[in-house]
């Protein structure tokens, strides 16, 4: 089984709903669980295939930022 990918998104920069939506969007590529610490939204992702590991982290992070920016502008996806 692949090692989980640990991502974190600072709460002052990323919206929790945005991170959750991004995780849902990429759920087909791995087993994704959400959590939080005092400062960060935490995402743990176990990719279904090792080949998508790096892309999964990059794409999920990008999408979380995209969703955050849209939400800050008052645009829902």
């Amino acid at each position: 089984m692949a090692e989980p990918l640990a991502l974190r998104f600072h709460k002052s920069l990323y919206l929790g709903d945005a991170v959750r939506r991004a995780a849902e969007r990429f759920a087909a590529l791995g087993a994704i669980t959400l959590g939080e610490s005092d400062a960060d939204w935490l995402v743990s992702a176990v990719p279904l295939r090792e080949s998508v590991r790096a892309r999964l982290g990059d794409e999920l992070s990008n999408h979380a930022l995209f969703e955050t920016i849209l939400a800050r502008k008052g645009i829902s996806t």
Binding site: H10, S12, L13, Y14, E59, S61, N62, L65, I69
Partner: peptide
């Protein structure tokens, strides 16, 4: 820049 590259922000 989201279309051009991966963007990650941190505090």
């Amino acid at each position: 820049f989201i279309d051009r590259c991966y963007v990650y922000l941190d505090r």
